[in-house]
């Protein structure tokens, strides 16, 4: 199955197996969209069920969330630069931009964890009300995805350092790129529908 190599395509698309992996990952992202859509639907059903607990306006730290958004959006951009460097066959540039991407992602994660800790100190926990249950699980699922993405990217960077840029490592990097952009898109929806809408009431 490693036959059927087409060297006129970008590195990550050259083998048949790689093309299948990338298609498979797109389909997986489709499943992820359904997953997050379901979580958004759950949130949409429950977001006003405060059950006497805190409301959006009581807890949301909009300034911190703005910084988080900025970090994640920038990381999506640097991730794009990394893929650009990969296409130019510049391994050093690729790794540098990937590391920057991950640092930005880690910054986002750090701020999100701090945000959660702050909410919990305010008495707004997952157990307080249906609103907060859906809030924490939606955001937490996204955060868990980011965490997973960082861990996964580190593993692939190690492989990249060990093996250089091959059709296989290129494909792995490319797929992580897709994943990272996807998380960014999800965050835009979270930012709009959870934070901005929550602030407006």
């Amino acid at each position: 199955m490693s036959a059927n190599v087409n060297t006129s395509l970008p590195l990550e698309y050259q083998t048949h197996q790689s093309r299948m992996n990338i298609l498979g990952f797109w389909i997986f992202l489709g499943a992820e969209i359904v997953l997050f859509a379901t979580l958004f639907a759950v949130y949409a059903v429950l977001y006003q069920n405060y059950a006497g607990g805190p409301t959006h306006q009581d807890i949301i730290m909009i300034k911190e969330v703005m910084i988080q958004t900025l970090l994640l959006l920038t990381s999506s951009f640097t991730c794009g630069l990394a893929i650009y460097e990969m296409r130019r066959n510049n391994v050093k540039g690729l790794i540098s931009w990937l590391v920057i991407t991950l640092l930005l992602g880690a910054g986002f994660l750090f701020m999100e964890i701090n945000e959660f800790i702050h909410y919990i100190h305010e008495g707004a926990t997952m157990q307080t009300s249906a609103f907060l249950s859906s809030f924490f699980v939606l955001l937490g699922t996204h955060g868990a995805h980011v965490t997973l993405g960082i861990g996964w990217a580190i593993i692939v960077i190690i492989q990249l350092i060990k093996r250089g840029l091959t059709p296989v490592t290129a494909r792995k990097i490319f797929i992580i790129g897709l994943y990272w952009h996807f998380l960014d898109v999800v965050w835009i929806f979270i930012f709009t529908f959870v934070y901005l809408k929550g602030m407006v009431g």
Binding site: L46, N49, A51, Q127, T128, S129, A130, F131, S133, V137
Partner: peptide
């Protein structure tokens, strides 16, 4: 949590 509970706003 309270997604589907009777108490605290679950559905």
């Amino acid at each position: 949590t309270h997604f589907f509970t009777v108490s605290s706003g679950g559905s």
